[in-house]
Computed example of a mutant assay.
Amino acid sequence: MKTQKIFFCGNLKFLRERKHKSQEELANILGIKRSKLAALESGQTKSPLPEDFLNISEYFKISVDSLFKIDLSSLSELSLRQLEAGNDVYITGSNMRVLAMTVDKTSKENLEYVPVKAKAGYIAGHRDPEFIAGLPRFSFPSLPKGKTYRMFTITGDSMLPFPDGCDVIGQYLEDWRDIKPQTLCVAILKGEQDFVFKQVTLKGDGLLMESMNKSYQPYTVPFSEVLELWRFHSYHTVEVPEAQDMQSIATLIREVQAEIKVIKGRR
């Protein structure tokens, strides 16, 4: 039987340093002596307790299997964040969500742009590095660092006042459990030829999709049908709002504020 290479010792030191913890600090968190942690990192202890592995796995949010079988120092920061979010090949198997992306010459992630003409191919090619590399891409200096973003062209009137044809920038969601009720998201769904831009809420074993245009009925999509979720960051359009529309919105806001004052005065 072929000997399996074990990466636990190196991974433990790598993860500790990635969190900027000293051996003393991490040992206190794990409830063990610093000397024991040093022995675990160096591989000098031959009989560690099972609970030590479980505590380390729980603290770093990475499965015991991955701690032993994967050289974590060889992974990209995005891959590490995916493991920490629960997208672990040893936990979720074939359901692991893998995001293809591109970087510039300084290894900074690009902002890939998925225009209308690329929509049909994106469903099949969203995991294909060659397809993603073929998308238009550029740098957007005002985006927060440490996250992954992508731009999608949205069509239709289901999300008015977002205009038809506007470009929405979304932040990639690794852990769908972070979604708050009615979070604006671009959802990439199996079998769809378009992107779904909706207000998304966790509901049982799926996601409730609601349009801002109330003439469209809400519906629920099972988790198994969702390929990617991108939380709304900003949108861009060449359409200029009509002055009458802005005046109507301002009037409505004033009316609501007046009603609130009346209600407060009755208490």
Rank of each mutant, 00 (worst) to 15 (best):
I6M: 01
V64G: 09
R34Q: 15
S107G: 01
F60Y: 07
F8Q: 04
G165Y: 01
K214M: 08
D205N: 03
S211I: 03
K19R: 11
K119P: 02
K117H: 03
R231N: 10
T237S: 14
V116L: 13
R231D: 07
L135A: 11
G86E: 04
E112P: 02
F8L: 06
K147T: 13
D71P: 10
G191K: 14
A124E: 08
F197R: 09
P161C: 11
S139Y: 13
S42P: 02
K190Q: 15
F14I: 11
P141F: 08
K147E: 15
T251G: 11
I91T: 12
I154G: 00
D205M: 00
E225C: 10
I56Y: 00
N11P: 06
V186E: 08
E255Y: 04
E24T: 14
E41V: 07
I249V: 15
G165V: 01
K147C: 13
M209Y: 05
P181R: 02
A85Y: 02
G43E: 02
T183H: 02
D157Q: 07
V98E: 06
Q44H: 06
N87Q: 15
P50N: 08
N11I: 03
L143S: 09
D128N: 15
F138H: 10
K147W: 12
F131S: 05
K119F: 13
F60P: 01
D52G: 04
F138L: 13
E112M: 01
E192L: 12
F60Q: 01
L208N: 09
G93Y: 02
D164T: 03
L67S: 12
D175E: 12
V186Y: 01
A243C: 02
Y90G: 10
L49A: 13
T3E: 13
G165H: 01
T92N: 10
G134I: 09
Y216W: 09
D175K: 13
G31K: 08
E17V: 06
S57P: 06
S47D: 15
E84K: 01
F14A: 14
D245I: 12
S139P: 00
D128V: 11
K261D: 05
S63L: 06
G121T: 09
S76T: 15
P50C: 11
E58I: 06
C9F: 00
R267T: 12
V64L: 06
I169Y: 03
M209F: 06
K119H: 15
Y216A: 03
P136V: 00
F197G: 12
Q171N: 10
R267H: 15
E210L: 07
V196D: 11
S76P: 04
I91D: 12
D52K: 02
G191T: 09
V186N: 03
L72D: 04
E24G: 07
K21T: 02
N95H: 08
I249H: 10
G170R: 01
K46I: 13
Q23T: 14
R34T: 14
E109F: 09
L160V: 14
Q217S: 15
I29P: 10
V103I: 08
Y113R: 08
G125P: 07
R254Y: 08
C166M: 10
V240D: 11
C9G: 00
